[in-house]
Design a protein around this nucleic acid. Sequence first.
DNA 1: CTCCAGGTCCATA
DNA 2: TATGGACATGGA
Length: 292
Amino acid sequence: MNRLAIAIPPHFDFAQCLRFLDRNAEESLHRVEGARFLKMLPLHSGPALFAVQGDDSVLEVELLAGDPAALPAIGDYVREMLDLERDMLPFYEKMKSDAVMGSLVHRFDGLRIIRLPDLFEALSWTIIGQQINLAFAYRLKARLVERCGTVLEHDGQSYHAFPTPEAVLGLDAQVLRDMQFSRQKADYLLSLAETMGSGKLSRSALEALPFAASRARLIALRGIGPWSADYVLMKCLGATEAFPIADVGLHNALRIQLGMDRKPTPAEIRSLAAGWRGWEAYCTFFLWQSLL
DNA sequence: CTCCAGGTCCATA
DNA sequence: TATGGACATGGA
């Protein structure tokens, strides 16, 4: 059998998630095709391509290429990627009367944080995305992925997976410069690849730490500051209390939601977010979605 | 042309 | 401990 069904929990809406996945046409690590998305994973048993679609009651994962024995692992991946294990009831209960979030949780009911389970990918993506527009960031990522990520051809399409630290470590800094990475970003990326490739940092090691300690460990990395650390805690490690408070997208979304003619100050944001305790990551994600 | 993008590091005081 | 500038490129 090459299909797997996953029951849909309360406050999950596949269409909302698909809208986020479809936010940028230059995304190189998955493809949205009609009402489903396709993604390739480089598993032990070889590359596996799968498609996910959903209705009101069930998500269906279909293996399109690869070893059928990998299906359970793919199901686990999809559950994590779509944050399906999260009990969202406390979030909706807490936010329904919030000044900023009240309307957004209604508008985006069922959206989940779309996660990046691969720590190296998540960290690399924050480095790539720092201080440049998202369109350019997607382009840089695509160049890196096409250069040294794994690829699977299927049905006339190429499906890429993010490179391993080892693959990136094999690149000369000049190759990254030629892809239009800044000198700093090339340096940060190679440094990160060395750190992770040599086992000095791993997702499992981070997960063993309390929130504050894992955040400090991330910030100790070259090229990873508070924004990147919080982004990774939110998108990779599933920490709902992570809060990338300096994010310009968050600022713009708040400005628009509040009808302001300027961005809110840090103090104003802290005040607005006073009632978000424990769910800052979800609030941030919903605010990002409001910008699409 | 100028300013700003899903920031971070480093030099200077 | 705090602030200013550099970084690469592209879109508004």
